[in-house]
C-alpha cells in the first residue's frame, strides 16, 4: 500500500514483561517521519517501558523495533533521548554545561574528552532552551523546569533525527511548558520525528499532530483528529474519564 516511505519508528508485536507480569502486550506502532507524536495512557499503562524498549534499555519478551528500517544498535547516533527528570540524582556534583555536554559523549566515543567544539554546541543548545545564563550553575540549584530544559538541551546536542522524550512536561512551570512546545514544533519543522510520553489529555490536540493511546495494549494510534476520540479514550482509561469534556 504505502510501503514506499520508510518508517521513523516501527514497532512490531512487542511484548515486555517484568517477572511474569506483562507491562506491554503485543504492541504494533508505526511512526512516520516528521511527526510529533504523544503517547498517552493511564498510570502503569507502560508508556515509559515502551520508550525504554524502543531504546533497547529493557529487553522485550517478544517483538521487534526498527528505526528507519534498522535495529536501534546501529541507529543510536540518530536517536536522542530525554529520560524522566526524576530518574537521576540532581545532587550529583556537576554543573549545567557538563550535563549538556554529556549529549556529545556518544559521538565522542571512548576515552576522548569533550573539548571546545563540544562546549560550543552545548552553549548553542542552552541558548535554544533559554538557559545560557546558567552554564556554571550547580544542577541541584535548578528548578524543576530548568532541570527539564537542561535535559532537553542535552538531547539537542545529540543532533538526532528521532527524539524520544519521557514526560518532558512533568512538573514544569507555564513558561517552560510553552518553551518546550515551541522547541518541539521547531524540531518537527526541521523534519525530526519526536515521540513524547504525555499525561495531560487537555493539551494533546494543541501540542501534537499524532497520538498513541496505550494501556498495556495499543488502543489506537494515528493522526490526532482521527484517533483522539471519546470512544478510544474511554477504552484507554476505562470509566475514569468523567472529567473529559468533548468539544464536538
Amino acid at each position: 500500500m504505502e510501503a514506499a516511505e520508510p518508517k521513523a519508528i516501527e514497532v512490531t508485536d512487542l511484548t515486555v514483561a517484568y517477572q511474569d507480569k506483562p507491562v506491554l502486550w503485543d504492541i504494533d506502532l508505526d511512526v512516520p517521519p516528521g511527526v510529533l507524536l504523544s503517547i498517552v495512557g493511564p498510570n502503569g499503562a507502560g508508556k515509559t517501558t515502551l520508550i525504554k524498549a524502543i531504546l533497547g534499555l529493557v529487553r522485550p519478551a517478544a517483538g521487534n523495533v526498527l528505526i528507519y528500517n534498522k535495529p536501534y544498535e546501529v541507529q543510536r547516533r540518530i536517536v536522542g533521548y530525554v529520560p524522566q527528570r526524576g530518574s537521576v540524582d540532581w545532587d550529583f556534583p556537576t554543573n549545567v554545561l557538563d550535563v549538556v555536554m554529556m549529549g556529545r559523549y556518544g559521538a565522542l566515543g571512548w576515552v576522548r574528552r569533550p573539548g571546545k567544539s563540544e562546549r560550543e554546541l552545548a552553549m548553542q543548545a542552552l541558548e535554544k532552551v533559554g538557559m545560557e545564563a546558567y552554564t556554571t550553575r550547580q544542577i541541584s540549584q535548578l528548578s524543576g523546569g530548568q532541570q527539564q530544559r537542561v535535559f532537553l538541551a542535552r538531547a539537542l546536542v545529540q543532533d538526532a533525527t528521532v527524539y524520544l522524550m519521557d514526560e518532558p512536561f512533568q512538573g514544569v512551570d507555564a513558561t517552560t511548558e510553552r518553551a518546550i512546545v515551541t522547541l518541539l514544533q521547531e524540531l518537527r519543522a526541521n523534519g525530526k520525528t519526536v515521540v513524547v510520553v504525555h499525561h495531560d489529555l487537555q493539551t494533546v490536540t494543541d501540542y501534537f499532530d499524532w497520538v498513541m493511546l496505550l494501556n498495556i495494549r495499543r488502543i489506537a494510534s494515528g493522526p490526532v483528529n482521527e484517533t483522539f476520540t471519546p470512544d478510544n479514550l474511554r477504552e484507554t482509561y476505562g470509566g475514569r474519564l468523567a472529567f473529559m469534556k468533548t468539544d464536538k
Binding site: L55, E73, R76, S87, D89, T94, V111
Partner: peptide
C-alpha cells in the same frame, strides 16, 4: 582513563545505556 564513561554511568545510567 574511563573518567567520562564512569561519570555518566553514575549520573544517568539510562542515558548512558541509550548512547551505547
Amino acid at each position: 582513563i574511563f573518567w567520562k564513561e564512569l561519570k555518566l554511568l553514575v549520573f544517568d545510567e539510562g542515558f548512558a545505556a541509550s548512547i551505547g
